[in-house]
Each structure stands twice: as C-alpha cells, then as structure tokens.
Amino acid sequence: MTVKHVLNDQLAMGYAAGVLPEAFDVVVAAHLSLSDEARAMVSSYEAVGACLMEDCECFDMKPDAFASTLNRIKQSDIVVEKPKAKNVLPEPIQKYFGGDVDKVKWKSLGGGVKQAILPTDSKAQARLLYIPAGQSVPDHGHRGLELTLVLQGSFADEVDHFGRGDLEIANEELDHQPVAGMEADCICLAATDAPLRFNGLIPRILQPFFKI
C-alpha cells in the first residue's frame, strides 16, 4: 500500500464519532479499505470513543433483555467473510451499485467524462467520476468541503499528484483543475456538502442539469 495522501484528524474523528453525512462516510470507508495508515488514525479516535462510552452513565436494560438477545442470536446468522477479489471499487462503494464498475450506470457529462451519483442521504452528495486518461475536469472552486478519493488511474492538480487510495481534501480556498494521468482512465469517488462552483460560463449553466 503506497497511499501518500491520507485523511486529516477532523475527518478521522468525525468518522469515528459517527457524525459525518453518509456521502462522506462512504468516501472515508473506501479510503480506509485502501490505506492502513488511515485505518490506524481512525482506530485511535475510536479508542477515544470507547473511553467516553465507558464513562457514560449506565441505563438498566429491560429485565428480559438478555434472554431476548440470546433468542435473536439463535435466529441470526454468523457473519462469514468472503475472500476479497481485487476490485476497482472497494466494498463500501460496491454496496451502492450492487457490484464493481461493470455494474455502474454512468451518465455522460460530455467529452468522455461520466458520473454516477450514489443514493445517499441528502446532507452531502457522493458521485463516481470517470475521466478519460489525459482529460481534465472543468476548473472549479468549492463552497464547502470536497473529498476526492482515487480508485483507478491518477489525477494531478495545483496541489499534487494523486493515485489509487489517495484522498484530496479541498475547501473554499482551493480552485483547481484536476487532469487525469495518461496511464489509465481515472475513476474517483467525490463527495461535497455544497454544490461546486465552476469558473467557466458553460459548465455553470449545465450545473443544475447534472447535479454537480
């Protein structure tokens, strides 16, 4: 695993505490599937959560709670892990499409760029982006927070070069124009909690139609 750009403390804590919008949760979960460094960061914040839970005031369970739990166990199945195939989409993303990239129903954005929106709750929006090798995404700024996780190929922008598993965290200060690397078509998962702000006139007119 050679992931270079991992999530920050804010996101690690937010994910561990469980306060992120669903669209950000899926980006972080996919990122953790690809980076042990990121997983260790989140786990340390989960240890903090455990300390707080240990200190919580206890509430009595119902008198029949233990019997009822044993009963639920008898009616449930033990979770058996399946061997993981080497897929482009990590499991947390596959759950939204019912499989790997071959199951994704893309919508064209023009110029070979395609997207597929994940059906998450509406507090933030996550979408898969498909950018042909060497192609650029329209120059854009952000009103809120934008997370971009690379799943295939790579992209480069004003900040750095990002490969599989790398997460770029962009906020209001960053205006960037990501360009996909030449080695392969680039697939990324991007999530925002506010619509993007495109700098050209045409993309701005198209924005309401494409929900980007």
């Binding site: 669903e22 892990e81 061997p83 993981k84 499991e91 947390p92 759950k95 709750d121």
Partner: peptide, 13 residues
C-alpha cells in the same frame, strides 16, 4: 438514525 446500513471499511481477514 439513518434507517440504512452505514458504510464500513472492508473487514480485514
């Protein structure tokens, strides 16, 4: 709260 399964990272084998 969400009435849907939360995205979780892949289980480590």
């Amino acid at each position: 709260f969400r009435r849907a399964a939360r995205p979780e990272p892949e289980d480590l084998p």
